[in-house]
């Protein structure tokens, strides 16, 4: 009894039997998921598998649910689009909603962490896509959360900016060690960043894999490649070109699983 109580205490997320319907359609079907404090979990899945819905539920944005869901009360959320308030300057966007410390120095400290200190006075409309996404990350981090929920935060960035943003998230996580749930459809991103990769299909956890690779990681490592193939297989990916003529960028097709 005591040990299970203790186990619960070391968790940032605990989900038991979670079900979410949209009308007749079951989007999440009796799902179980635990995330330990300080653990970095990537949630992979084809679009429509329910992964973003799960994140919205954990972020307390969707309450039409059945089941037992418990999350850390100190949460930071970053969405696929930056969702900055267009009428607040960048620094004010970062510290908005804080109970205390809603001042410029605090904002600048958070912006420095994401390498955006020089843009504090800008309006959100004047930021580039990558800058806006970093500002959104700073806003999630400034609250010093125990749980960081990231919903495809790099999805709308170009390839180069995405690499930088991923490195930034890896750095910040090494420093703060909060629990992270990263929703993504990018296999390499999941393997670069996460301690554990969870593959979702048809509203449940279909597979799980512990990524026991030293950090910082590189996609060129042999072990990395093996894990990637395993995940692609689980995701039902069909390699369209034979390995011999394959270009460096992965050309693949993710089937819906239907």
């Amino acid at each position: 009894m005591l040990s299970s109580e203790k186990a619960r205490h070391s968790l940032a997320v605990s989900v038991r039997g979670l079900t979410r319907r949209f009308g007749e359609r079951l989007v999440i079907d009796a799902l179980d998921l635990d995330i330990k404090r300080g653990e970095f979990v990537a949630l992979l899945g084809a679009s429509g598998c329910g992964k973003s819905t799960l994140l919205r539920i954990l972020a307390d944005l969707d309450h039409e649910i059945e089941g037992d869901v418990r999350v850390s009360p100190r949460r930071g959320v970053a969405f696929q689009s930056p969702r900055l308030f267009p009428w607040k300057r960048v620094w004010n966007n970062v510290v908005t909603g804080l109970r205390e410390g809603r001042d410029r120095t605090h904002a600048d400290a958070a912006l420095t962490e994401v390498g955006l200190a020089h843009r504090g006075d800008a309006w959100p409309k004047d930021l580039s896509g990558g800058e806006a996404q970093r500002a959104s990350l700073a806003r999630a981090l400034v609250r010093n959360p125990d749980l960081l929920l990231l919903d495809e935060p790099f999805g709308s960035l170009d390839a180069l900016t995405r690499l930088k943003a991923q490195a930034l998230v890896a750095d910040l996580w090494q420093k703060h060690r909060q629990a992270v749930l990263l929703v993504t459809h990018d296999v390499e991103e999941a393997l670069l960043l996460a301690d554990r990769v969870v593959v979702m299909r048809d509203g449940t956890v279909a597979h799980e894999i512990v990524v026991d690779l030293p950090r910082p990681r590189s996609p060129s490592e042999r072990q990395f490649g093996r894990l990637r193939l395993q995940l692609l297989d689980w995701l039902g990916v069909v390699e369209t070109t034979p390995p011999a003529s394959r270009s460096p960028s992965l050309i693949s097709q993710i089937s819906d699983g239907h």
Partner: peptide, 12 residues
């Protein structure tokens, strides 16, 4: 509405 959601995640 997405900004209202943000406000919710920031505990406004």
């Amino acid at each position: 509405k997405t900004l209202v959601e943000v406000a919710h995640t920031l505990n406004f």
